[in-house]
Design a protein around this nucleic acid. Structure first.
Length: 360
DNA sequence: CAACCGTGGTG
DNA sequence: TCACCAAGGTT
């Protein structure tokens, strides 16, 4: 895979021109603040543009600078991320901000190489920030670019294939060299998102159709091959709905794993066909306090990428109201209003709504 | 390197 | 309804 200089130019120039004429007016394209651009790149990972826009604006207003983010409690950062998913992104963002303060004097390093050393900066995000915010000729490959290249150059192999990935990064490295590397990288992604789409690509409107191997060969529909996904595994959680006065008991999960660092109705994993006795034991162990199941308040189901999640709500009580537990970072009794400000997954919000409805 | 990590949009 | 997917990173 060694395209000629002429072939590269027949892609680079039209694509950049097309981008200048057709790029969407996105809020993070109106700023030159590296921190704001970094934030957009992290939020956009595996997430739709339309979903990100309101989050980006709100988060930036709440944490306007690297220093503000670094100084904030993780709990607040996760609350600002509430509902966006992939919460390790927020934990890594927070850690990276603190490292930027301690190692780089509070300013983002400008090279992809330095950025790569920070939490949450992989190859893609390092290249994106270095090229878009700092003008470095740093390559990037995301899902869009992979699709665009696999069609333009007829790169074979399924997503994840080692040789395929190496080829894609080589191509990105060759193509990014030239004027306005940040805009060029964005032109690749914008093209993939709007024209060279996964389904029903708009080849008739494509600015680089003449250079496209898949178009010439009539293979646009078969490149790239779809990724094979594992079937979701079942995960059943028993949730304790423990009310006292006008409050409910909430717990903050450990920082790693599913919903790491987020608040929840205290949860314990149970077997899909767990008996009430087993459920009682699990919740008692989790809370470190004797628990009695009063009644079942309902069930909430959620589909995650790798998990088929079932949340079973149990109204519980016990002889002693717990205030600490080994299983959780923190326990807290909260009114509904207070709970609304906590960092909580959408799944848990649904469960909480179901609990409140059942209790009302 | 395969598994893990969320959510909402789409056909 | 459901499978697929969207500007990935970590372990």
């Amino acid at each position: 895979m060694t395209p000629t200089a002429a072939h590269l130019a027949s892609i680079r120039t039209p694509l950049l021109g097309w981008y200048d004429r057709n790029k969407r007016d996105l809020p993070w394209r109106r700023t030159k603040d590296p921190y704001a651009i970094w934030l957009s790149e992290v939020m956009l990972q595996q997430t739709q543009v339309s979903t990100v826009i309101p989050y980006w604006e709100r988060f930036l207003a709440r944490f306007p600078t690297v220093l503000a983010l670094a100084s904030a409690p993780l709990d607040d950062v996760l609350a600002g991320w509430k509902g966006l998913g992939y919460y390790s992104r927020a934990r890594n963002l927070h850690r990276a901000a603190q490292e930027i303060v301690s190692r780089f004097g509070g300013k983002l390093p400008s090279s992809a190489e330095d950025l790569l050393s920070l939490p949450g900066f992989g190859r893609y995000t390092s290249g994106a920030v270095a090229s878009i915010a700092f003008g470095e000729e740093a390559p990037l490959v995301d899902g869009n670019v992979a699709r665009v290249f696999s069609r333009l150059f007829e790169v074979e192999g399924p997503p994840g294939d080692r040789e395929r990935e190496a080829t894609l990064w080589e191509l990105a490295t060759l193509l990014v060299k030239g004027e306005r590397p940040g805009d060029f990288n964005q032109s690749l992604m914008e093209h993939g998102a709007t024209t060279c789409r996964p389904e029903n690509p708009l080849c008739l409107l494509c600015p680089v159709r003449d250079a496209c191997g898949a178009f010439r060969a009539g293979r646009v529909d078969e490149l790239p091959p779809a990724k094979v996904r594992a079937t979701p595994k079942k995960l059943t959680l028993a949730l304790a709905v423990w009310s006292h006065a006008d409050t409910l008991l909430f717990a903050r999960r450990a920082d790693s794993g599913l919903f790491g660092g987020l608040w929840e109705l205290p949860a314990a994993e149970v077997d899909e066909d767990a008996t009430p006795e087993e459920t009682t034991l699990r919740l008692t162990a989790a809370l470190g306090a004797g628990v009695r199941l009063e009644s079942q308040l309902g069930t909430v189901k959620r589909q995650l990428t790798h998990r088929d999640l079932t949340l079973r709500l149990y109204r519980v009580s016990g002889p002693q109201r717990p205030s600490r537990s080994e299983s959780f970072q923190e326990l807290r009794w909260c009114t509904p209003t207070e709970a609304a400000a906590l960092g909580m997954s959408t799944a848990m919000q649904r469960a909480l709504e179901a609990a409140m409805t059942a209790l009302a």
